[in-house]
């Protein structure tokens, strides 16, 4: 749900965040130029663009961690944002469990207080009425949040994201492990706008599939910088392309974005024809049945002699990147 600014009309979904003429200059170079976009509640947005196109900057501005920009960026009242950075900063001295618990800090607090009250009943001088009243209050909250088994819930979340052992200190974790822990904490926090900077880097394919499903069912807005084309195709309802600091929203998933992009390149006189053909071939592949896709990749084994011969050489010329063959 990225859209040029327009007043919401009729039964349009609610706007949860808006950017008006947002620009940022860093080291005398424009990082983002004059971006005006509104974001709908519940929209799933994939962000695409080359390195240095300003993707991370847009997310950091939305998360409120980068306030150094021109223009206006407004989070609608009563909503929260949460960001997964490329290199998340975590307290080195804490354990994995302690960091993950931060994602459910309020619930952890209720359960802790509830257990403390139970202990205070043993004290003969305690104000029983006050304790009982407070205990009842906490009980209602814990019931409503369905978190009596919070430990098991946290354990399940850590398991789903393949976090390291809960007692491991953050200080000894690899970059990929830290990202898993940070992602686990963020998903437990459930902010209204989830901002993810390359969430699938360093995750294995199975966890990526799990994350795709989780984000698809996420009730809030999801804005993800990602090159995971299954997420972009299956989950994203909008593609926000950043090109040299400018934001170009597209309503649709990856396939439909490819289609319009390829069509646009075909019309441009000076466009890179190799690039355009590459987009077309990817579209062709998407449109094949699973069986057709399989037959296509298998064909390289049965047709290997042809691939290694003159036909392969001709094909090389049409590619953006090619791998020279060895003298076998």
């Amino acid at each position: 749900m990225a859209k040029p600014v327009k007043k919401s009309e009729g039964d349009q979904p609610e706007i949860i965040y808006s950017m008006m003429r947002v620009s940022k200059i860093y080291n005398n170079k424009p990082v983002i130029k004059d971006i005006s976009l509104s974001y709908y509640h519940g929209a799933k947005i994939g962000v695409l663009g080359l390195n240095g196109s300003g993707k991370s900057t847009v997310l950091r501005i939305m998360a409120g961690v980068d306030g150094d920009f021109n223009g206006e960026a407004v989070l609608s009242k009563g909503y929260t944002t949460g960001l997964l950075d490329q290199e998340p900063k975590l307290d080195e001295t804490k354990t994995v469990r302690e960091v993950v618990e931060e994602g459910a800090a309020e619930k952890v607090g209720w359960l802790k207080e509830y257990n403390e009250i139970a202990e205070q009943f043993a004290d003969p001088d305690a104000d029983m009425d006050a304790l009982l009243a407070r205990q009842g209050e906490l009980q209602d909250r814990i019931d409503a949040a369905d978190c009596w088994d919070l430990d098991a819930q946290l354990e399940q979340a850590m398991d789903a994201l393949r976090c390291p052992d809960p007692d491991t200190k953050i200080g000894v974790l690899s970059g990929g492990e830290r990202r898993r822990v940070a992602l686990c904490r963020l998903l437990l926090q459930k902010p209204d706008i989830l901002l993810l900077d390359e969430p699938t880097n360093h995750l294995d394919a199975e966890t990526v599939a799990w994350l795709e499903k989780h984000l698809n069912e996420y009730t809030g807005t999801v804005i993800a910088i990602t090159h995971d084309r299954y997420f972009l195709d299956n989950v994203a309802g909008w593609i926000l392309e950043l090109d040299r600091g400018e934001g170009i929203p597209w309503k649709g998933n990856y396939s439909s974005w490819l289609e319009q992009k390829s069509g646009r390149l075909a019309q441009e006189e000076k466009s890179d024809k190799r690039r355009q053909k590459t987009l077309e071939r990817e579209l062709e592949w998407i449109r094949m049945s699973p069986k057709g896709q399989h037959t296509k990749s298998k064909a390289r084994i049965s047709n290997f002699e042809r691939l290694a011969g003159e036909e392969g050489r001709e094909k090389e010329q049409e590619l953006e990147i090619y791998i020279p063959r060895g003298h076998a």
Partner: peptide, 28 residues
């Protein structure tokens, strides 16, 4: 850390490569 354009181009390069490949990847 690759962008979608480079990934797509790399896919085609490996696809047309006159040899075999072993690819450790998480990209479905």
């Amino acid at each position: 850390d690759l962008d979608v354009n480079t990934m797509r181009a790399l896919e085609e390069a490996i696809e047309s490569f006159a040899g075999s490949a072993v690819v450790v990847s998480h990209d479905r």
